[in-house]
Write a protein that binds this DNA or RNA. Structure first.
Lengths: 106, 106
DNA sequence: TTGACATATTGACGCTTATCGATATGATGA
DNA sequence: TCATCATATCGATAAGCGTCAATATGTCAA
């Protein structure tokens, strides 16, 4: 069976991780930044752990700069994984959400 | 925060549940049918448990007929939840996967 | 009504995982 | 080199969850 949809699902199946994803959407943040954004909900080792899970799932980009490690959300990956989920579990609807680009080529 | 995406993610974040979803895609099956399809992987109470999780997440339709309870996958719900995920976590891509119907109305 | 079938529920068990404190690793500036 | 900052890793703990055997509930046919 396809393990990709499972890895994706497990990665996003946690509230803290979804909050981290929200904060990493469209911006680059350091680990400390993320900890601050979560405002005391969890501490630094926990954030590092979640970032590793997200990284293993290919859901974040990482960029090292000096002693700071910058993270941002991989929106394309999210889109692809969701597209795969629809293909697998909503084939009757898959055709209706194909990319605009593919339509405008008609 | 939005709890909808979390319920959906948790519901699909299990291999057995994803297999059940695959088997329930486009067809109506009884609990016994699903147990048979899984071919000994898990037994009946476990299947009932998973079906309840899927039902609580709104991911299956249920239809009672005599002593048989028929289940099928709610593909529209899958599509909506995936759309919500993209809106939340891939806003830069959300515009490029809007429904064809919305495009053809231009 | 009774027995058989279909499904749900319960309680227990074990595994996974989220979390933390403590510590290690790594990089920078003085 | 040394102190400091940023992040990762480790070990322990607790909570969540998937699974099963046993049993309960519900439905139908005889």
């Amino acid at each position: 069976m396809d393990t990709q949809s499972l890895v994706f699902a497990k990665a996003i199946a946690d509230e803290t991780r979804q909050q981290i994803m929200s904060h990493l959407c469209c911006v680059w943040l350091s680990v400390t930044d993320v900890v601050d954004k979560l405002d005391g909900k969890v501490n630094q080792p926990t954030v590092s752990h979640h970032l590793k899970v997200l990284q293993d799932a290919g859901l974040v980009f990482v960029r090292q700069e000096g002693r700071i490690r910058w993270y941002t959300l991989n929106q394309e990956r999210v889109t692809m994984c969701c597209g795969q989920l629809v293909s697998q579990f909503a084939p009757d609807y898959a055709a209706s959400i194909i990319p605009v680009s593919a339509i405008e080529q008609r």
